[in-house]
Each structure stands twice: as C-alpha cells, then as structure tokens.
Amino acid sequence: MVDTSDMVIFWAVVMARFLIPLTIPRYPLPGVLACLILDGIDQTIFQLFTSLPLEGYQSYDKSLDVYYLTITYLSTLRNWSNLYAFKLNRFLFYYRLVGVAVFELTQLRPLLLVFPNTFEYFFIFYETIRLKWDPKVLTKSKLITAAALIWIFVKLPQEYWIHVAQLDTTDWIRANPSNAIILIAYAAFLLGMAWWLVRDLPPTRPGLEIAATPVVAAPAVPPTPKIGNEQRERLIDNSVIEKIVLISLITIIFAQILPGVRASNLQLATGMAVLIIINTALSHWLARRGTHWKSIMREFVVMSAVNLGIVLAFNFLLPRYDGSINLFNTLFFVLLLTLNITLYDRYKVLHVRNHKTEIGS
C-alpha cells in the first residue's frame, strides 16, 4: 500500500511542475531556470523522501517537459521584441519537437543528438541579455553565432552524455574526483565564449529587467455578426497552420508516452484529427467573439470541457475496436495540451499586434 506522505510529496512535485511554468510568460528567466532545476531534481526528491517506484513517473516527467518547453516558446510570442530572435528560436523549438516526436515513435536515442534542445538555452541567452540590454541590440549575425555556439559547445556534448553514452555526472565525478576540474575548466571556457559574444554590446542600462512588460489587456476584437466568403478563407491562415502543427506534434508525443494505451496508429491518428479539428474550429469561434483578458479563462474552461468530452468518447469507443486508454492519465495530459492551446491563442494575438509592421514587411 502506498504511503500517504509519499503521495503528498508526489503530487506536490507534479503540481509544482504544472504551476511554475505559468510564471515564465511574466518572469521568463527565473521561471525557466526554476523549471530546469526542478526537472533535474524531481526524481532525486522521490528517491530521498519516498519509496515510490519511479517507472510510473517517467510518462509524467516527459509530458511535463514538453508542457513547460511549449509554454517557454509561447512566452516568446508574448514578450520578444527582436523579431529575428523570435523566428530563430521558433525554428529551434519546432526542430526539437519534431526530434522528440520521431524519437518517441522509433526509440532511437541518437536522434536526440541530431535534434538537440538548443531552443531552451538560446531562450536563456536572450533573456539573460534582456536583463541589462534592450534585446534589439542583438544583430542577426550575433544571434546566429549564439545559437551555433550553444548547439555545438553546450547541447551536443550534453545530449551525447545523457542520451547516447547515458552517463551520470555525479557518478563520473565520484569515480574520479579530479574529473571535477575538467568540468570547471569547460565551464570557464563557456563563460569566455559568452563574454566574447557580448563584449561589443552598447553600455548596459541601470537595474535588472527581470519581469517582462505587463500586458494590461489584449486587443479587443469585436464580435463579427456576419462572415463573408473572404473572411471564411482567412480561417485557414498561418496561425491556424502553426497551431495544427503544434497540437499534432504534442499529441503524437503524448500518445507515445501515455501509459496504458492500447490503440492502433489509425485509432490514435483519428482521435488526434478530431481533437485538432474541433479545437481549431472552437478557438476561432471564440476569438471572433472578443479576445479581451476576461475571455482567457472562459476559453480555457470551454476548451477543457470539450477536450475532456472527446477523451471520454474515445474511452467509450476504443474497447469496441480492441483498444483502450488509461483514462486518468489521458485526462491529465489533455489538460496540459488545452492550456498550451489557450495560451497560444492569447499570445499569438499579442505577437501579431506588436510586430504588425515587421511581419507585413
């Protein structure tokens, strides 16, 4: 029988990993660093303070990783003033997401080396610069150089160490304490590269810009009483296409790591297609009836109810076709997905408003 204190600790960690990412849009650097640290120590917490088997946590761990990285990307829609940095980071995010999806389908660990998580560290680089400078001082060449240095000297070694060699740094140092000197020297090398990259930036501004600019209200879009043919055509625009891609990749990843799933690829693809179509149509319908801040909770509640209904219907129908899902875990992952969709709808509006001239040029 599972000890009550073990379950309290388990759900405290899970809820922390669910709630802390929600701080990233307002406090980008502290929020993402807190997520990064918690992701690194959560299993250590379980080992030290509980007797829970960690195998059951793996699916939660992977899905919460995707969840917080997606919110990190969505925060760039809300906050980033340097449009080229945003576009570069968007590529890095989707490149990694595709890699994770392919890995979950094939279980080929070297793929994680081919598709490194450069996105997260590039985000940290940008937000670190924003502490003391206006990020618009970052030129295209400097941004590309930063991404390349992070890719080659930070993420490739890390991805190889963790996912290919499958080594543990603590054990490596414990086996030979002098190995710590190698790590210190490499850290000094990385700091030297960082200094070289920012050495010619303009003088810093006073203080630290830790918080992102507050959003008083999203731009209000009045209800459209009548939609003509031209307006109907606009329902399929770049935003819709991106959201379909985003939802598809996240759903593929969640479906593969979902414990207790017994369904064919066709059944999963059908469920995913239904989810995408209904969510896209519903979010458009809601967006056309006003996007002021009061509607964000309404959209989340409505989308959650719809998605939960889809999952319940899927749970009811699958046994008729020799399939099954773990209902509780599926509902948990759908909640994460729904929150990502809601934030995308919200922040995409702000991104288009803030970069309307640059996007149109």
Rank of each mutant, 00 (worst) to 15 (best):
I144P: 00
S63K: 01
E104N: 12
T338D: 10
G260I: 09
R130N: 09
Q43H: 07
N315G: 01
A185E: 09
V154M: 08
A34H: 11
Q158L: 05
P219H: 03
R96W: 12
L69I: 07
A211N: 10
P214D: 15
L112P: 01
W172S: 11
N326V: 02
L38S: 08
Q43N: 06
L191F: 13
T280W: 00
V301W: 08
L258N: 04
S361D: 09
K136G: 04
F91A: 11
T50S: 11
V302F: 00
V66M: 12
I173V: 15
V334S: 05
F314D: 04
Y186M: 02
Y73D: 07
L339D: 11
L33C: 07
S51C: 02
S248K: 03
H351V: 09
M7D: 07
A211M: 12
A313V: 09
A146W: 06
E299D: 13
S239N: 07
F300D: 02
P223S: 09
V102E: 01
D65V: 12
L48V: 04
I20K: 06
S295H: 08
G40H: 08
V198S: 06
I257F: 12
K294Q: 05
R205Q: 12
E127D: 04
T4P: 15
W11L: 15
S264C: 10
L54F: 04
V216I: 05
Y94I: 07
R288T: 04
L112G: 00
R130V: 05
K142M: 04
F86G: 13
Y73G: 08
A194V: 03
R234L: 10
L268E: 07
P259C: 12
I24N: 02
D171H: 11
V14C: 09
P157K: 06
R346E: 11
I9Q: 13
T70C: 14
I9F: 12
P135Y: 05
V32W: 07
F316A: 13
L105V: 06
I276R: 01
Q43M: 10
S283Y: 02
A313E: 02
R234Y: 02
I20H: 03
A146L: 12
H355W: 09
E299M: 05
I359Y: 12
G99I: 00
I152V: 14
K140R: 15
F189G: 02
N82M: 02
A146F: 09
T128S: 15
P110I: 14
D322V: 04
A287G: 10
L335S: 08
F125V: 10
V274Q: 01
W80Y: 13
N340G: 14
Y121D: 11
G309W: 02
N265T: 14
F153M: 15
L268V: 12
L88D: 08
S5W: 14
E299A: 13
I247H: 10
D237L: 10
D200T: 15
T357A: 15
T342N: 15
P116D: 05
Y67I: 11
A175W: 02
L33H: 06
V302C: 00
I24F: 06
W285H: 03
N238V: 07
Y126M: 11
L54Q: 09
P222V: 07
V245I: 15
I253E: 04
K155R: 11
F189S: 03
L92D: 01
L108A: 09
F91V: 14
Q47S: 10
V14M: 13
D345Y: 08
A85F: 10
T251A: 05
K142D: 06
Q58V: 11
V100C: 03
P225A: 14
